[in-house]
Amino acid sequence: MGRAKKVVLAYSGGVDTSVCIPYLKHEWGVEEVITLAADLGQGEELEPIREKALKSGASESLVIDVRESFIRDYAFAAIQANALYENRYPLGTALARPLIAKILVETAEKYGADAIAHGCTGKGNDQVRFDVSCAALNPSLKILAPAREWGMSREETIAYGERFGIPAPVKKSSPYSIDKNLLGRSIEAGVLEDPNVEPPEEIYEMTKAIADTPDVPEYMEIGFRNGIPVTINGEEKSPIGMIECLNTAAGNHGIGRIDMIENRLVGIKSREIYESPAMTVLIQAHRDLESLILTADVTHYKRGIEETYTQMVYNGLWYSPLKAALDAFIQKTQERVNGTVRVKLYKGNAIIVGRSSGNSMYTPDLATYGADDKFDHKAAEGFIYVWGLPTRIWAQIGK
């Protein structure tokens, strides 16, 4: 089944992507498989993963550190858009996919490959994100998804790999399916497939149980420049440093746990558990700062844009004309989003307790009810007359 001669395979080191290597070569007639592992801050030792790919039959095994770009170009853009899928999930996994697709395509072009491949199954969202993103970046590349077509159970997949020298997992594998990067963790499967079962504490890694969190709140001041977080308590942070600092601080207070029934793009509902401490705090702080700075009509209109933006990212349309147009709108709204937000971290909650900005539209002498009130109360009567005129006419005609 010679679909391609040279393939770049998105590689994680797991059973499926390892078995993809001999499967592509022996079942589909691929002559050369180059593997690519993206370092997104998953914390795993990537050198053993690189070596495993070579032992599994890859002609070359690449590891590319994309952590800086992941935060700067993808996570920060999502913060500016206040991107929360179904108003809860900060897209930690979804945001990584267009970046992986980008380096897959770049690597395929560099090595003269005629296809890219991934190990996604037919039930998840990632297959859509990879296929659509790669097609958008280079429509001439073929896209291969062996695990979507081979029809093997996990046991059969492991047995197939053993035939080609790929060792079975040494220890009993976790019942959970976990994806991890700098932005957080997603956990599914096992007992979590019953939506009525409380998640066991053992599944969490980045966040403390509320009972184990400090009894004293922690205050942090987060500084934003053009809608991008740049300082913590007045200290400049690199993009990676910003996320790592807030993951630790917020996770220590039990902030960032999400347990939701999620509507997948492929039409099924799935129970998903997420840990995303930094993104939870940053989106909340950013949205609050916007409320101080943006006009009412921009704020309200942007909410609809944010919803569309979030769905597009979740649905794998990062590289699309509408997404590019929404980016332009969002960037324009961020030109004045400069200032500081004070956040209280306590017992699973990130509570906004203060905000300030040189571009604030909050005017004390208009907002006050005290003696310094400068608002022209007499003007309100004429405003109400004009504002309510259509409603009044409608009511009169109806009588």
Rank of each mutant, 00 (worst) to 15 (best):
A211N: 04
R67D: 05
P199A: 15
Y219I: 15
G43K: 11
M152R: 05
E31A: 05
L99E: 15
Y89S: 13
N349G: 09
M206K: 14
L183G: 11
L294D: 06
Y85H: 04
S56P: 05
A249I: 15
K323I: 01
I268S: 13
A136G: 02
C120M: 02
S18G: 02
Y89H: 12
V63G: 03
P321E: 08
G151T: 03
T363V: 13
S276I: 04
D288E: 08
K347T: 15
I258Q: 09
I352C: 07
A96F: 07
D65P: 04
A371M: 13
P199I: 14
K399D: 12
G13E: 00
I79N: 02
I71C: 07
E188Q: 08
F130A: 04
A379N: 08
R88G: 06
A117C: 05
A4D: 03
L345P: 00
Y385P: 00
T35I: 07
K378P: 02
D215S: 15
I293V: 14
K323A: 11
I64P: 06
I258D: 09
K25N: 00
I330E: 06
L246D: 14
G43L: 07
V15E: 10
V15I: 13
S56N: 01
L282F: 06
P239T: 15
Y314T: 10
D327I: 02
I21A: 01
V313P: 00
P48Y: 12
E235K: 15
A136L: 06
G92L: 00
I49M: 10
P390A: 09
E60F: 03
Y74A: 08
T107Y: 05
E45G: 07
G234A: 09
N196R: 10
T17I: 02
S61Y: 02
K332G: 12
P239C: 14
L317N: 04
Y319N: 04
Y23M: 00
M220R: 15
R129N: 05
R129D: 05
E45R: 13
I232Y: 04
S357Q: 06
K110C: 03
Y11A: 03
Q80I: 00
